[in-house]
Amino acid sequence: METVQLDAEQFAPRDREEAIRSIIWDNVVRVEIQQQPDPEHIRVGARIADLGMLTICSVRSNATTIERTSALAADPTDAYLFVGLQLSGSSMVVQGDREAVLGPGDLAVYDTRRPYTLVNEGGIHQHYFRVPIGALALPGRALESVTAVRLDGRRPLARATAGYLGNLAGSVADLSTAEAAQATAPTIGLVRTLLTAQLLESPLHREHLDDSLETRVLDFIRVHLADHDLSARRIAAAHHISVRQLYRLLGRSGIVLGDWVRERRLERCRDELADPTSRRTVTEVAHAWGFPDPSQFGRAFKRAYAMTPREWRQVSRAHSAD
């Protein structure tokens, strides 16, 4: 687990604004930050913990406005949902045609694929949780309908979620690497549960959940291709359907789940073996993408691409050198 500490007072006043921007851009998300006009008065303290698919950013600062502009939101590589947990004071989240004013214990979400603004006139005191969009297994239109909505921290599920997220963020510095890895999946699952409950309260929102289920399933599989425990049961549970429904859903498009997963994993292996910057051995590449048996991987690769993994690596890299 990687952790980055940010203390604005470590930098000379003239360097603070750019140093803060650079650290946030590199470790959290690319946004424009409007801070105190006098650099001497900039006060920002943050801890950023990278737990793999989950990033936790705990921040305390003086008055700040944060903007994800249209130009920044157009970058397809930044596809995240942020969950903000207000700890004290108040803040406002603006996205689309909605705005949510948060008090202590309240939550709100916003999507980096669309512009948003975070207004913190009294300063920031929040935990932010960054989750890849694909890991949530929720359709885009559904997410769009819950962004910039105040999730009242006094309601049971939101209160329980806020309590768990706050405790996790508060203890993240004490977690071992193994504990951090184990915490990621249930945390994302809890966020998904909270958002799904919010969606189910409205018939219109419920329709969004039924849209594009096959697309969401396939996106979920792509995100988790490297997971050795990826199974039909896990995929079905993530989408609140039975294994039988999963197979029936994919079967309508002629997709055989096991074959489709194997083909996508082979594609990832093929791409990495062709990459001249990769230093992993063939066996390491295979294991990283869900093939624990090197012999089985070699046979599957040759059936798919008519050459062994080592032959493919040699041919593709020689061609790249030319």
Rank of each mutant, 00 (worst) to 15 (best):
R30D: 07
E18F: 13
L81T: 04
Y164F: 15
V59D: 01
L6N: 04
T196S: 07
G105W: 06
Q35F: 14
S171Y: 13
V315M: 09
A49N: 04
R192S: 07
D210F: 14
A142Q: 07
A232T: 10
L107K: 04
C57G: 05
R206K: 11
P309Y: 12
T281N: 08
D174Q: 15
R21I: 08
A181M: 09
I48P: 00
G290L: 15
I255V: 04
P13D: 11
W289N: 15
Y164T: 14
P276H: 06
Q34F: 13
M1A: 11
R252Y: 10
L246T: 02
G258H: 12
L250C: 04
A46M: 06
L249V: 07
P104G: 06
L204M: 14
R310I: 12
R206Q: 13
S316A: 10
L213D: 05
E267M: 13
L257N: 00
A185V: 05
I188R: 00
Q198V: 08
W25K: 06
R280Q: 14
Q95W: 04
A304L: 12
T55K: 12
P203K: 05
D106W: 03
L200R: 05
H208R: 15
Q5E: 12
A321K: 06
W25G: 07
R244N: 09
I241M: 06
E9S: 15
T77D: 10
E17A: 15
S212Q: 14
G122M: 00
R16P: 12
